[in-house]
Nucleic acid binder design. Structure first.
Length: 411
RNA sequence: GCCAGGGUGGGGUAGUUGGUUAUCCUAGGGGACUGUGGAUCCCCCGACCCGGGUUCGAGUCUCGGCCCUGGCCCCA
C-alpha cells in the first residue's frame, strides 16, 4: 500500500476542526490589529532563498528543476516571499503595510516531535515602519496571537545591538562564529576561540552579557549603545501594556539580516523543539535587488502550538440527525433543508436503514434527532428527540429549530 | 547524516523453546427487525512493513531497506 511521504501528516475531520478553530482565533486577532492576509506561491525560484540564507540551505529544501530548466524550491518559510512580493507588487503602497499569512512550508529535514517536512506557519510582516511603537506592536501582536490559541508560553526579547557593540571591531564572519558559541552556551569553545584570536579580553563581558536580565545591567557591560533610547522606550511601552517577557541579550536569530530587536517564544511539553515563535526587525529587500525597507515580523510554528495544546477537544459541533420512515421521506428532506438554513449541521439517512438503525447511527455524532413518519408528514410537524436526555416532543418545525439552536453545546 | 526503541486487520491488542486454519476488543458492512432499537441476535469484511538469509517449517531468529516515536546535529 502507498504510504504518505515521510514527515507529512494526514488530518482527519476531528483534528482539522481543532486546527481550524485555533487558526480562526489567530486570524481574528490579526484582523483586529489591522493585519490583512496575503498569499504567495507555494514554490519560488531557488535563488530567492539562497540569496537570503546562502547555498547551504539547498540541502534542507525541496529543490527541483521545472520543465523549462529553472531551479525552483518549495518555500521553506514565508518572509522572503513576502518581501519579494512587496518589491514586485506593493512598493508604492502607503506605509506601513500590515500583512499576515497562514501557509504551509516545506523543509527536507529529519522528522521528530514538532518537526515535520510539511508544516504550517502563521506569521505577520510589518513593512515600512521603524519606530519603538512599531517594535512594541509586533511583540504585543505576537503575545496576543499566542494567547488566543490557548498555549502556555514564555516570551524572550533581545536586541542584536548589544552583542554588536562588544564585537564591533571584528569581522562579520568572526562575529557569527562567536554568536554560535554563545547560542550553544559552549563557553569552553568560546574561550578557546577568543584566545586563539588574541581576544580573551572579551570572554568576561560576553558571558556576563548572557546573564543580564535588565537593560541597566546590559548597559553596564556594553555602554550606551546607539539604540539605547529606542530599546528603552520599547521596553517601557511593553511594561506599561503589561506584556510579560524576559530580556535575553543572547538571542541571536541565526541570520544576518536581522537588524535590531529580536524575540522568541517557547512552549512547554514539546521536548527538544520547543520554540513556537521567532521574529524581529530586519532588512531583507536589498538582497533581492530592491530598495531597502525597514521591516519586522515573526512566524508562529502552528503545528507546534497544536502539539502543545494536545488533544484537548474543542467544543463539539451541534449536529441534528434526520430520521424517517419511507412515508415521511419527502417531508424529511424539507425538514433537513430548514435545519440547514438555520445554520445547523444536519445529516439525513442515505443508507436505507430502518428507524432504529438510523437513531443508532445518528447518536454517534448528533445531539438531536428529528423523527419523521407518516404522522409528522401529514401534520407538518417533527418529533424532536434529545439524545442526551432521551426526552422527545412533537413540535412544529420552527419550534423544533429554535429548540436546537438555543440548546447549549453537548454537555 | 548519527543514536535508541519500535512496526500484527481502520484503531487497540494476544501470540510460549521457531511448529496446524494467528487471539480478543472495537470500528465498519450486510441481514433479521418497519414509529424509538443510543438496542439485541446472526453473518461478513479485514493484519504479521518490504526484501534477502538460516530452517523441513519464520509473526517469532538473522541481515538490509522503508516507516514511526523520541534524542543528537541542524534550525530560516
Amino acid at each position: 500500500m502507498i504510504q504518505k511521504p515521510r514527515g507529512t501528516r494526514d488530518f482527519l475531520p476531528e483534528e482539522m476542526e481543532r486546527r481550524r478553530a485555533v487558526e480562526k482565533r489567530m486570524r481574528d486577532v490579526a484582523r483586529c490589529w489591522g493585519y490583512r492576509e496575503v498569499c504567495t506561491p507555494e514554490f519560488e525560484e531557488l535563488e530567492l532563498f539562497t540569496a537570503r540564507s546562502g547555498e547551504g540551505i539547498i540541502e534542507e529544501m525541496y529543490v527541483f528543476e521545472d520543465k523549462g530548466g529553472r531551479m525552483m524550491a518549495l518555500r521553506p518559510e514565508i518572509t522572503a516571499a513576502v518581501q519579494r512580493m512587496y518589491l514586485n507588487e506593493a512598493r508604492v503602497t502607503p506605509k506601513p503595510l500590515r500583512w499576515c499569512y497562514f501557509a504551509d512550508c516545506f523543509r527536507y529535514e529529519r522528522p521528530q516531535k514538532g518537526r515535520y517536512r510539511q508544516f504550517w506557519q502563521f506569521g505577520v510582516e510589518l513593512i515600512g515602519a521603524d519606530t519603538p511603537v512599531a517594535d512594541t506592536e509586533v511583540v504585543m501582536l505576537a503575545r496576543d496571537l499566542l494567547q488566543s490559541s490557548g498555549v502556555s508560553f514564555t516570551l524572550q526579547i533581545g536586541h542584536l545591538g548589544f552583542m554588536k557593540a562588544l564585537l564591533s571591531d571584528m569581522e562579520l564572519k568572526e562575529q557569527r562564529i562567536l554568536r554560535r558559541y554563545l547560542d550553544k552556551k559552549d563557553f569552553d569553545g568560546l574561550k578557546g576561540h577568543l584566545n586563539a584570536g588574541g581576544r580573551e579580553d572579551l570572554y568576561d563581558s560576553l558571558t556576563r552579557l548572557l546573564e543580564c536580565r535588565s537593560l541597566d545591567e546590559i548597559t553596564e557591560i556594553t555602554g550606551k549603545i546607539p539604540e539605547h533610547g529606542r530599546i528603552e522606550e520599547t521596553l517601557d511601552l511593553l511594561d506599561e501594556m503589561a506584556v510579560e517577557y524576559s530580556l535575553n541579550p543572547g538571542i541571536a536569530r541565526g541570520l544576518d539580516y536581522y537588524t535590531g530587536m529580536v524575540f522568541e517564544a517557547f512552549a512547554y511539553n514539546l521536548g527538544a523543539e520547543n520554540q513556537i515563535l521567532g521574529g524581529g526587525a530586519y532588512r531583507l529587500s536589498h538582497l533581492f535587488g530592491g530598495d531597502d525597507v525597514p521591516s519586522s515580523g515573526f512566524a508562529i510554528g502552528f503545528d507546534r502550538v497544536m502539539v502543545s495544546l494536545g488533544d484537548s477537544a474543542g467544543e463539539p459541533e451541534r449536529v441534528v440527525g434526520i430520521v424517517y420512515t419511507p412515508e415521511g421521506k419527502s417531508h424529511a428532506l424539507r425538514v433537513a433543508r430548514v435545519f440547514r438554513e438555520a445554520g445547523l449541521r444536519t445529516e439525513i439517512d442515505i443508507m436505507g436503514r430502518n428507524i432504529g438503525a438510523q437513531i443508532t447511527h445518528a447518536s454517534k455524532s448528533a445531539q438531536f434527532v428529528a423523527i419523521i413518519g407518516k404522522r409528522e408528514q401529514e401534520s407538518g410537524t417533527v418529533t424532536l428527540k434529545d439524545l442526551n436526555s432521551g426526552e422527545q416532543r412533537e413540535l412544529d418545525l420552527s419550534s423544533a429549530v429554535r429548540e436546537v439552536v438555543t440548546s447549549g453545546p453537548r454537555g
